[in-house]
Simulated assay, not measured.
Amino acid sequence: HCKLLKKLREVALELNCEPLILTYANHSKDTLNKNKVPYIISTTPQKIEIFKSRGLNNIELLNFSTQLAEMSPEEFLEKELIEKFHPKAIVLGYDTHFGKDRKGNYDLVKKFEEKYNYKTYRVEPLIFEGSLVSSTIIRGLLSKGEMIAANRLLNRRFSFHGTVTQGKKIGKTLGYPTINIQTENEYQLTPPSGIYYSTSKIDNVMYNSVTNIGTNPTVSTTADIKIESFVLEFDEDVYGKNVETFFIERIREEKKFNNLEELKEAIHQDVQKIKGMINENNWLS
């Protein structure tokens, strides 16, 4: 997508026009088949934030509906693009599909260039270190906890937003108070259970942190997945606030310890290891 955004800016500059991003506010399967909605890498608010950080402020969100799904590609092109935006150019990814049965693609858009007086540009796939970069590949890396590789392909640190909720405060009794995070989207992809070197953005300030994802097997018997972060050099009440957690590296699997003392020692070792990593490369920027 970064390659696509770069091409969009280049074309807009070349044609002296305002770049516009047209994207969906929801996943197509959220309408067509809720049981098969893939876990998302970025929520719509995150996408908008990323677009704006790259200087692209003109964003139109389409709500994918059954009516939209039944539109022929030609009708979609005419009604959703030409009549609404009168484009001088249309920039598509190599695998862009639209319209009924996903039959609309670059070739169809190219076919109507003369009729609607626009230019068509196709962005070819990005190959990185011999591999195709795609959402599916990145989703697979994130699902395995391979944060360094995933972040390299994303060209940013994977993150998600969440609300700070009340926890059992066991971390506080051990000397490591944590913030418990409830993600804001039911389809949000979360990395697998484990301990992560992370950073936490609270009130627009970034802090180094240690994040645990898992069931807390030492102190809990439920299978519920919890997300909690010990934020370094931070001691404020943030219940109810929105926090963005950025994942840098998975440092170990989650383990069940025999008692709280063993758990406390493991947390201490995790924190010391991450402090060492911070000294080598501080990711607060």
Rank of each mutant, 00 (worst) to 15 (best):
K3T: 15
K7M: 12
K7A: 15
A12I: 04
L13A: 12
L15E: 10
L15T: 03
L15P: 00
L15G: 02
C17A: 14
C17N: 09
P19Q: 02
L20K: 12
I21M: 04
T23V: 02
H27P: 00
K29S: 06
K29F: 11
T31N: 03
K36I: 03
K36S: 13
Y39G: 14
Y39P: 08
I40C: 05
T43A: 03
Q46C: 11
Q46V: 03
Q46W: 06
I48M: 04
I48K: 05
F51G: 09
K52W: 05
S53V: 04
R54L: 15
L56S: 08
L61I: 01
L61P: 13
N63V: 07
L68H: 04
M71K: 15
P73H: 01
P73I: 01
P73V: 02
P73T: 01
L77H: 10
E78K: 14
E80L: 07
L81G: 03
H86N: 13
H86Y: 06
H86E: 14
K88A: 12
K88S: 12
K88D: 12
V91R: 02
V91G: 03
Y94Q: 06
F98L: 13
K100D: 07
K100A: 08
K100F: 14
K100H: 13
K100T: 09
G104K: 05
Y106M: 05
L108R: 08
E113V: 05
Y116R: 09
N117I: 14
Y118R: 07
Y118S: 04
P125H: 03
F128W: 10
E129H: 14
G130Q: 12
S131M: 13
V133I: 15
I137S: 15
L141K: 11
G145C: 08
A150H: 08
A150M: 10
L154Q: 02
N155Y: 08
F158I: 07
H161E: 10
V164H: 00
G167Y: 00
K168T: 00
K169E: 01
G171W: 00
K172R: 13
K172D: 01
Y176M: 02
Q182D: 13
N185T: 12
N185W: 08
Y187A: 07
Q188K: 11
P192K: 10
G194R: 09
G194S: 11
S200Y: 01
N204M: 09
N204K: 09
Y207P: 00
V210Q: 00
N212M: 05
T215S: 10
N216H: 03
T221M: 04
A223M: 14
K226R: 14
F230D: 00
L232F: 13
L232C: 05
E233H: 05
F234N: 01
D235M: 01
V238I: 07
G240A: 02
N242M: 10
V243Y: 02
T245I: 06
I248G: 03
E261A: 08
L263F: 04
I267F: 05
H268L: 12
Q269M: 09
V271K: 01
K275L: 10
G276T: 02
I278M: 04
E280N: 14
E280Q: 11
